[in-house]
């Protein structure tokens, strides 16, 4: 549905984005991760039609960014990091203006979008009176007012308080029902909770593209499991130490909370525990390692890049 191939951007002699390729399907949420200056915003601006690419192909529903810019831009909604607002307008006037600007009709759609982003009670409020959180919501409303296929959100949760972050996370997942969503964030844990796939950027190039779990597995060839096992300590050690690096986190009688780093698959791990005559009440793939994972990819030049072709090959295998 959304196809990006060989996207490249030069600022003078400096290459800010090099040969970026990926695809997005309807209903998918992809997160763009990278250190400052890695090219995230440049990619988002190019995909939004705000910046001309130096090379590459970008298509949304067969509309090409370069060959059919107007048709392309009708299919894209963009929320930049700094929400672009006209403070002299009310919420209704602003959304109505943007709908018309994008070749759509405001009218009832304005109310519909305001209800979707929980802004309906403020519809006639001047924008100047809105709080930061509601301004972000209005920014999202403006990005979807014309029913685009692709919604691009640059740092959608920056500056929000914890409650607003939870609400925004829900809102982004809701958007995925009708749109494809591409977002960038510095909140790595947020990316992990909101996105189906990660694109990790380093110096303008994609160095990894897959889900967090498979990325973690690919990099270390190990997954961190959290388990709660019931039995004798010696029996547990005998059964599990052969599979990987075992740490007993807490012990209470015959109940042990364990962290096991292992290349073994979850099903085999569970079977091993049960076959050893132990009780298993919890088996969980730990997800808190995104920060370390990201640092490993972004900072370690030896890390092997995981290309989309690699992922496909693995999936086929």
């Amino acid at each position: 549905m959304i196809q990006v191939q060989g996207l490249t951007k030069f600022y003078g002699q400096r290459c800010a984005v090099r040969d970026v390729s990926f695809a997005l399907e309807r209903g998918q949420v992809i997160g763009l991760l990278g250190l400052n200056g890695s090219g995230k915003t440049t990619i988002l601006r190019m995909l939004a039609g705000d910046l001309e690419p130096s090379a590459g192909l970008v298509r949304v529903l067969e509309h090409d960014l370069v060959d059919a810019p107007k048709a392309y831009r009708r299919q894209v909604g963009f929320l930049p990091d700094r929400v672009p607002l006209y403070p002299d307008l009310s919420v209704r006037e602003y959304l109505d203006y943007l709908a018309r600007l994008r070749g759509s009709i405001g009218g009832t759609r304005v109310l519909e979008v305001c209800e979707q982003v929980d802004l309906a009670t403020y519809i006639d409020e001047p924008i100047v009176n809105l709080s930061h959180g509601y301004r972000k919501r209005l920014g999202i409303a403006s990005a979807i007012i014309h029913r685009p296929a692709l919604v691009i959100l640059d740092e959608p949760i920056s500056g929000l308080d914890p409650i607003q972050i939870v609400e925004m996370r829900k809102l982004i997942r809701t958007l995925a029902q009708d749109h494809s969503v591409l977002l960038s964030s510095h909140f790595l844990s947020e990316i992990s909770q909101t996105c189906d796939q990660l694109l990790v950027l380093k110096e303008g190039e994609i160095v990894a593209q897959e889900s967090e779990t498979s990325l973690q597995s690919r990099l270390s060839n190990e997954v961190a499991y959290d388990l709660t096992v019931h039995g004798e300590e010696g029996q547990i050690r005998n059964a599990l130490e052969a599979l990987g690096d075992l740490h007993i986190e807490t012990a209470s009688g015959s109940t042990f909370d364990l962290r096991l780093r292992s290349a073994t698959e979850a099903q085999i791990l569970a079977k091993t525990v049960i076959d050893a005559g132990l009780g298993l009440s919890r088996l969980h793939v730990a997800t808190g390692g995104l920060e370390s994972l990201f640092m490993a990819i972004a900072q370690n030049p030896e890390t092997e890049a995981a290309t989309p072709e690699d992922v496909e090959t693995e999936a086929e295998a």
Binding site: G49, D50, S142
Partner: peptide, 14 residues
């Protein structure tokens, strides 16, 4: 100055 130029640049207008 206020950052709203992006609304015009990303709109389907020449």
């Amino acid at each position: 100055q206020v950052g709203t130029q992006v609304l015009l640049r990303t709109a389907p207008l020449s």
